[in-house]
């Protein structure tokens, strides 16, 4: 079933030196519970596309539908995780950060506490429920952000290079954890990255964007069983294919 439909979407920024066309004629469908990765070089419009789906921006052309309804703004059917660790509220503990969405929805205190605990456990941070963000490492902060985006139970999870600022070892760990979380929650995930190996590790499907203006150049289905072995020949073959679509060194 089609969950997210991006139909002939274009987006133009009113830049200071005249308009900048960030996206042109982008058409992508994401199935329910599918894990879709958007890859492309820096500046090709990945963040723009994610912000359009999140409802922070409105398309200048085309339309985006979620569960058949046109997106007109942000909504509780989508959870967003940003790249920047600073997305957490520094004045709230991990627990209270995760409770935020439930609080906005008017959930009672008992339900909030219970649900937040459950999602902190899901990202393996139950012991740090009482810690403030600045007391947590970057990887832990991003895990809190994932728990926070999932806690109010959106059907769609939007992630913009959430692990790009982490060291390689932590990133591998986080990718494994994310696959587990996804397997357990069965969310529809739209995940932006410029890291091809990450895309092949995570995705059911990889969409390759080319820059200036951003447009879809390839749609690759990754038919590898999970958990995936990044050193297997088949894995490397997928990487090679996608790097080829990116046009060169990746």
């Amino acid at each position: 079933m089609r969950h997210i439909e991006i139909a002939k979407v274009g987006y133009e920024y009113a830049g200071t030196a005249g308009p900048v066309t960030a996206l042109r004629e982008v058409t992508v469908d994401v199935a329910t519970s599918e894990f879709l990765c958007l890859v492309g070089r820096s500046g090709c419009g990945k963040t723009t596309l994610l912000n359009l789906v999140a409802g922070f921006l409105s398309p200048t052309r085309g339309e985006i539908r979620i569960s058949g309804r046109i997106v007109t703004g942000h909504g509780l059917d989508r959870g967003v995780v940003f790249q920047d660790f600073a997305q957490l509220f520094p004045w709230r503990t991990a627990q209270r950060n995760v409770e935020f969405g439930l609080e906005m929805r008017g959930a009672g205190a008992a339900e909030r506490t219970e649900t937040a605990r459950r999602f902190l456990r899901l990202v393996d941070l139950e012991r740090f429920a009482g810690a403030y963000p600045h007391e947590l490492s970057g990887g832990m902060q991003q895990r809190v952000a994932i728990a926070r985006a999932l806690a109010y139970n959106p059907a769609v999870l939007l992630m913009d290079e959430p692990f790009a600022a982490l060291d390689a070892l932590t990133r591998d760990e986080m990718q494994r954890l994310l696959v587990d979380v996804w397997a357990e929650t069965r969310k529809t995930v739209l995940y932006v990255t410029h890291n091809v190996a990450e895309a092949v590790y995570l995705a059911d499907r990889v969409i390759v964007l080319s820059p200036h203006p951003g447009t879809v150049v390839a749609d690759v289905r990754v038919a590898l069983p999970r958990p995936r072995d990044p050193l297997s020949l088949a894995f490397l073959e997928y990487q090679r294919t996608i790097v080829g679509h990116l046009g060169g060194r990746g």
Binding site: F56, H74, V80, A86, F89, F100, G101, M104, R105, R148
Partner: peptide, 14 residues
């Protein structure tokens, strides 16, 4: 105030 906090709060229905 960090714009990201506001975006995050908006996305959570605030």
């Amino acid at each position: 105030v960090n714009r990201l906090w506001i975006r995050a709060a908006e996305s959570m229905g605030a």
